[in-house]
Computed example of a mutant assay.
Amino acid sequence: MFLARPRHLAMVALSAVPLLVLTACGGAGTADQAGGAAPIDVPAAEADGPLDLSGVCPETVVLQQDWQPEAEHGAMYSLVGPDSTVDTEAKSVTGSLVAQGVDTGVDVEVRPGGPNVNFQPVPSLMYLDDSIMLGAVTTDAQITALADNPVVTVASQLTVSPQIVMWDPASHDGATTIEEAAAGGDPLVSAGDVFPRLLASQDIIEDAQIDLSYEGTPQRFVSDPAILQQGFATAEPYIYENEIPQWGKPVGYQLLSDVGYSVYPEALAVRADKVEENADCLAKLVPIMQQAQLDYLDDPEATNELIVDLVDQYQTGWTYSLGVADYSVQTMKDLDLVTDDPASGVFGRIDPDRMAEIVDTFGPILVDAGQIDSADIDPESLYTNEFTDDSISMGS
Rank of each mutant, 00 (worst) to 15 (best):
V222S: 07
T104V: 04
Q64Y: 12
D299W: 05
P18V: 03
G35D: 04
E109N: 11
L79E: 10
A233W: 03
E109V: 04
D299A: 14
I205D: 07
D390Q: 11
V251E: 03
L335F: 03
L268C: 13
V86R: 02
I377A: 02
T384M: 09
P115Y: 02
I350E: 09
V12F: 11
F232S: 14
A175L: 02
N242V: 01
T153M: 15
T30G: 13
H8K: 09
K91V: 04
L297F: 10
A71S: 15
K333M: 05
D130V: 01
M133E: 12
G114L: 02
F387N: 07
S344I: 04
S131V: 06
S328P: 02
Q142Y: 02
D207V: 09
D309H: 06
G55D: 01
P379A: 08
N149F: 12
P364C: 02
D299E: 14
I210Q: 09
D173R: 13
N385W: 11
Q254E: 15
G216N: 08
G174I: 04
L297Q: 11
E241I: 01
Q315R: 15
L337W: 05
Q219W: 05
L125V: 08
D203P: 04
E276I: 04
Y240D: 01
I239T: 14
T88W: 00
G345Y: 07
V106T: 05
A16I: 10
L198W: 00
Q64P: 07
P245Q: 13
Q68A: 14
D353M: 08
S374A: 09
V137I: 14
T303P: 03
P69N: 05
D312P: 01
T104A: 03
A34G: 08
T88E: 13
T138N: 10
T94I: 04
N304F: 07
L128T: 13
Y264L: 10
G26H: 12
P121I: 01
R5L: 06
S78Q: 05
I365A: 04
R349W: 12
E243G: 00
V102P: 13
V98S: 06
M133L: 15
M133D: 09
V263D: 12
L9Q: 07
V102L: 06
Q100V: 03
T177H: 01
A45Y: 11
E236G: 00
D103A: 05
L134D: 14
F362V: 03
P58C: 09
A181W: 00
V359P: 08
D66P: 01
P196G: 00
D336M: 00
G95T: 03
T303F: 09
Q254N: 10
L255W: 02
A292N: 11
D390P: 14
S96A: 11
P187R: 13
A45M: 08
I365E: 09
L79S: 10
P18E: 10
M76I: 06
Y261P: 05
I132D: 08
L199H: 06
E380A: 15
D140C: 07
W247H: 08
S190R: 13
T153D: 09
E59H: 00
A147P: 02
P225H: 12
I288G: 01
G184T: 06
G395L: 14
